[in-house]
């Protein structure tokens, strides 16, 4: 489990670095998507039980993994996708106004 946790934190750091340090707007959105992916991985990986089967009852399982984090993650993925779509839409409109995607050029997005 420690290996999973290291992995999750590495992915989250990459995403956070993308949001904070990159100048291109699309890269910031990609960074947010990566960060959300790390959080979902955290949710699902702590729902795993040793030698568990997927949570579909077919009568042949002995141990089943936790179904609740999977349901939460499904909902959160859809919500994250809608928010990312909205962000990209706003970026398209900003691009129409400014013809550039760098934060240095766009006045109020500096800092």
């Amino acid at each position: 489990m420690k290996f999973t946790l290291v992995f999750i934190i590495v992915i989250m750091s990459i995403g956070l670095y993308g949001v904070l340090a990159k100048d291109n707007l699309i890269k910031k959105v990609i960074g947010i998507s990566i960060m959300e992916g790390a959080v979902f991985l955290f949710l699902v990986s702590y729902g795993y039980r040793q030698d568990g089967a997927p949570p579909i009852i077919t009568g042949y399982e002995t141990r089943i993994v936790d179904p609740v984090p999977q349901a939460l993650t499904l909902t959160a993925i859809v919500i994250g996708a809608s928010t990312t779509a909205l962000m990209l839409g706003i970026i398209i409109k900003i691009f129409n106004n400014y013809k550039t995607l760098e934060t240095k050029e766009i006045r109020r997005l500096r800092g």
Binding site: L86, I91, R108
Partner: peptide, 9 residues
């Protein structure tokens, strides 16, 4: 639009 983007991120 810029304010919205900053708010969204």
């Amino acid at each position: 639009l810029e304010a919205t983007l900053k708010y969204m991120i």
